[in-house]
């Protein structure tokens, strides 16, 4: 029977699930909106996989993204890995000579510097999430444009207007002013793409040596306007991998696969029927000490499954499972 490896990337905006076969080829990918509810979204994703493929033999599971711990508890993951490592792993499996990865997701933007198939440096946006996917989403919404048309419209511009890119709040008010002055929508959108890329280089990629091959990954890579702005700024071509939107999940799956193969262990996957179970989350504030930790409890069909959020281990070490 065919064995599959599952990779789950729970991000701020999207939750992505992928299935790889034994040759680590992509069999199935799902790109779902997290919509503020990661647990339901993971369940929904597993449900869709189950429906489409029937009972499949899961060989290994890896989770990544900002919701990776939660996802790992929910599905029983073999590895839980940060986004930088998984993005690099996926990129290298498709393009072994990658030297730079530009990645823009919902709330994070990062640059990963690779030399000789090894990550040697990376940077992520600091406290501010200006110029990431959720900001573009919001602006598209405000202008009444579907987000998937954003890039296409921006590319029509011949005379992009300059938008302040340092801060999302500044960018928005600048955009409104430009729009009230009569600039066309495509010029404003192209201007926004350029502002975002400018912000990326001055904030995230500052001082990093960008060498080809340059990959552009993450949800924002769908935006052709941003790709164009990157290429203009870098004066180099930028490659968008076929599965740019689920690279994190692919990387998590690859790392999980390798892990299980090398350790010769059975997967900790809890089974596809997770999707059918009823999960509830309840949280409370522990009053045991002045830290007042916020404890989160995960119940499956009213049975306590996991608890986390405490600093001292008083609650998380007494899990009922």
């Amino acid at each position: 029977m065919q064995k599959y490896t599952l990779g789950i990337d729970v991000g701020s905006v999207s939750t992505n699930l992928v299935l790889l076969d034994e040759k680590k080829h992509l069999i199935k990918k799902l790109y779902l909106k997290t919509a503020g509810n990661p647990i339901e979204t993971i369940k929904k994703g597993l449900g869709i996989l189950h429906e489409e493929l029937g009972d499949v033999d899961i060989f290994a599971v890896g989770t990544t993204g900002s919701g990776r711990q939660l996802a790992s508890i929910l599905v029983g993951a073999d590895i839980v890995k940060n986004e930088i490592t998984t993005h690099a792993a996926a990129a290298l499996s498709y393009y072994p000579n990658t030297q730079t990865i530009l990645e823009i997701g919902g709330q994070d933007s990062k640059i990963i510097v690779i030399r000789n198939k090894t990550v040697v440096d990376f940077a992520m946006n600091t406290v501010c999430a200006a110029g990431t996917g959720s900001f573009l989403d919001r602006q598209a919404q405000r202008l009444g444009i579907p987000i998937n048309k954003f890039g296409e419209i921006a590319l029509k511009s011949h005379n992009p207007t300059r938008i302040a890119g340092r801060c999302a709040v500044f960018a928005e008010s600048d955009m409104i002013h430009k729009q009230q002055m009569g600039h066309s929508i495509e010029d404003i959108l192209k201007g926004l793409c350029e502002a975002l890329v400018r912000n990326y280089f001055s904030n995230v990629a500052k001082g990093k040596e960008i060498r080809p091959l340059i990959l552009f990954q993450g949800g924002v890579a769908a935006n052709t306007g941003i790709k164009k702005a990157f290429e203009e700024q870098l004066e180099q071509s930028v490659t968008i991998p076929e599965n740019y939107d689920v690279m994190g999940a692919i990387g998590a799956a690859i790392l999980a696969f390798n892990h299980i193969v090398s350790r010769q262990k059975a997967t900790r996957f809890l089974g596809m029927d997770i999707a059918a179970q009823n999960y509830k989350v309840k949280s409370f504030e522990c009053k045991g000490c002045p830290n007042n930790c916020e404890i989160i409890q995960l119940f499956s069909d009213n049975k306590l499954k996991a608890r986390w959020g405490d600093r001292c281990g008083k609650w998380s070490s007494t899990i009922a499972v």
Binding site: T85, L92, K117, V120, L255, N258
Partner: peptide, 14 residues
Amino acid sequence: AFLDVLEGRGYIED
């Protein structure tokens, strides 16, 4: 991610 970089793990190997 930083600690991963420090260990300089080749991602191909496990």
